[in-house]
């Protein structure tokens, strides 16, 4: 039943480009893009409670891979390469850092994004002597939309599967108490590494798919730290521990940002900052958790009445 409903929803969403104009389609791409990023982020960070700010590092790697390889091989192969590169980087980084915890991990991941950006810049400046790269691919907005939709569906399916599989349970134990987890015989590092890599591959693909939309790629464009912050705040708003939580954060927040930037172009950043504070203040566990709490309170009241 759930599968059927999901498939129907997917088909309906896939038909959207046939009925809407360029601007709604652009909105759709934005929403799907952040929906994918937030869901992928929550794959790893939800159960383990590791706040990662490395989203844009992988996102940018994906975009750069497309910029470098687009002229050399067919597009599906480029995507595959992007995924592989993302995977290798994630494994290397994961091996080095997943022993860190708490604030150290947050700082490291933020540094990672900057490190990747500087490495790419260094390479481009000193080896290829070009900083900007051009992506001319015959890929229109509707193709990007469909690819992102497909990626989102796969990511959600993976998240669903993981939450029911052994590895998901293991992750939750690790997130609750790593000591208990290791006493239970859970391979902590291995489990975290697997999930971190999976989430990183999805982020890499999200960047790769969106690269043709910009035509021109340079480090400051694709390694923009705002992407990492927005992803975190969206996932937190929706609730990183629910399947659809990150998506429920991404959709309203993205539309809100869009509305703000259309109507308050000069006060956007101030309002955004206040909003972040409000989310952390009022909905520390996300909208869905707040709703559950609210519903429970209603039930309590009814029971008492």
């Amino acid at each position: 039943m759930i599968v059927l409903v999901s498939l129907l929803a997917l088909v309906a969403l896939a038909a959207v480009p046939f009925f809407v104009g360029a601007y709604p389609l652009g909105l759709g791409i934005g929403i799907l893009g952040y929906g994918v990023l937030a869901t992928a982020w929550a794959l790893f960070s939800g159960p383990t409670r590791y706040i990662s700010l490395a989203t844009v590092a992988f996102f940018g790697i994906g975009a750069y891979t497309v910029a470098v390889l687009a002229d050399l091989m067919p597009y599906p192969l480029v995507l595959l390469c992007a995924a592989l590169i993302g995977l290798v980087v994630a494994i290397l980084v994961g091996l080095a850092t997943l022993r860190l915890a708490g604030i150290y991990f947050v700082i490291f991941t933020f540094g990672l994004a900057e490190l990747v950006r500087q490495l790419v810049t260094y390479y481009e400046v000193n080896v290829t002597r070009t900083l900007g790269r051009y992506v001319f691919l015959p890929i229109g907005p509707e193709h990007i939309y469909w690819q992102l939709l497909g990626l989102l569906a796969i990511t959600l399916a993976l998240a669903f599967w993981i939450s029911r599989a052994k590895i998901g349970l293991a992750l939750r134990v690790i997130g609750d108490d790593p000591v208990v987890a290791s006493h239970l015989g859970i391979g902590i590092t291995r489990t975290k590494l697997a999930l971190f890599s999976l989430s990183a591959v999805v982020m890499t693909l999200a960047g790769a798919i969106q690269a043709p939309r910009w035509t021109y790629i340079e480090p400051s464009i694709v390694f923009n730290p705002t992407v990492s912050f927005l992803t975190v705040i969206m996932a937190l708003l929706g609730g990183p521990n629910r399947l659809f939580g990150p998506l429920l954060g991404a959709v309203p927040l993205f539309l809100l940002f869009e509305w703000l930037s259309a109507n308050f172009p000069n006060h956007y950043s101030i309002i955004l900052g206040l909003l972040f504070i409000a989310i952390v203040f009022l909905l520390p566990n996300g909208v869905l958790a707040a709703w559950d709490k609210f519903a429970a309170r209603l039930k309590n009241k009814e029971a008492r009445a």
């Binding site: 601007y23 652009g26 909105l27 934005g30 869009e258 930037s261 172009p265 956007y268």
Partner: peptide, 20 residues
């Protein structure tokens, strides 16, 4: 509009200007 120095915002702002 303010594109906030982001390529993605630039593209969407132009779509908004053109169609909305």
């Amino acid at each position: 509009y303010d594109d906030r120095s982001s390529a993605e915002e630039t593209v969407r702002a132009i779509e908004r200007l053109a169609t909305q």
